[in-house]
Computed example of a mutant assay.
Amino acid sequence: MHPFIALTAPRPDVQVVALRGALDGVTAVRVARIVEARARLAGTGGVVTRHIVVDLRGTTSVTATAAAELDRAATRARRRGLHVHVVGPDPTADIESVLQRTADA
């Protein structure tokens, strides 16, 4: 299965980056660029995003390189004041509980 990235905004302050398929280094760089772009916009007041949810529930595999790239992107986003949440790949992960916690933050 080729990787697929979907972006949604269930609330104005939350962006969800959902992945389907294998998460390799190339796909992780794409996700990192998305996260970093949202962080830059939030840093300038260009968007109201406060939370980014990286949804890995649909992934079939995650390489160590991909995990490290996502971790670096999350660290950079946090430095800009964003909260980064990773959901999954545990199929029992509940994105609604993450959204509830973001409402309280």
Rank of each mutant, 00 (worst) to 15 (best):
H85N: 09
A39G: 06
G43I: 05
A28C: 08
T75N: 05
I34M: 00
R78T: 03
V16F: 04
L70H: 08
A32N: 00
G88D: 02
T63H: 12
T75M: 09
P10E: 11
L41T: 11
D71V: 09
A64F: 11
G88W: 03
R20Q: 13
A42W: 00
P10Q: 10
H83F: 10
P10D: 12
A64D: 04
A68P: 06
V29S: 09
D104C: 03
Q15E: 14
R57M: 09
A66S: 13
A73L: 01
R20F: 08
A73G: 04
D71Y: 15
T92N: 06
M1H: 11
A6G: 05
V26N: 14
D24L: 12
T44P: 13
G45V: 10
A77R: 03
A77T: 05
I5H: 12
A28Y: 14
R38P: 07
S97H: 00
D104V: 13
R11P: 10
D90L: 00
I5L: 12
P10F: 06
V29C: 05
R11C: 09
A77K: 03
V87S: 07
E36N: 10
R30D: 04
R50E: 07
A67G: 13
G43D: 04
T49P: 04
A37Y: 12
Q100L: 12
T27S: 12
T60E: 08
V98S: 00
T102C: 05
V17S: 01
G46R: 11
R30F: 03
A9P: 02
E36Y: 02
S61A: 15
D90I: 00
T65K: 07
D13R: 04
I95Q: 07
L82F: 02
F4D: 14
T60M: 04
Q100M: 05
S97K: 13
R50G: 15
R11G: 08
S97M: 05
T102D: 02
D13I: 07
D94N: 06
V14I: 15
G81L: 03
V98M: 07
T8R: 14
L23R: 14
V48R: 14
P91W: 01
R80M: 00
R78V: 00
T8C: 09
R50L: 06
S61F: 13
A77N: 05
T60H: 02
A68R: 12
R57V: 00
R101Q: 14
T59P: 06
V35H: 01
A42I: 02
T92Y: 07
A42Q: 03
R76F: 02
D55G: 03
G21K: 06
A64R: 14
D94F: 05
I34A: 06
S61D: 14
R72N: 12
D24M: 13
G88E: 00
A39N: 06
A18W: 02
T92D: 13
H51T: 13
V35Y: 02
T63D: 15
V47G: 10
R30E: 01
D71W: 13
P10A: 10
A74L: 04
R11W: 10
G25T: 01
A93P: 07
R20D: 14
A67R: 09
G25V: 03
Q15A: 15
H51D: 03
V16Q: 02
L70P: 09
P3M: 11
Q100K: 09
A37L: 15
R20P: 01
A6E: 15
G81K: 04
T8K: 11
D90V: 01
A105E: 07
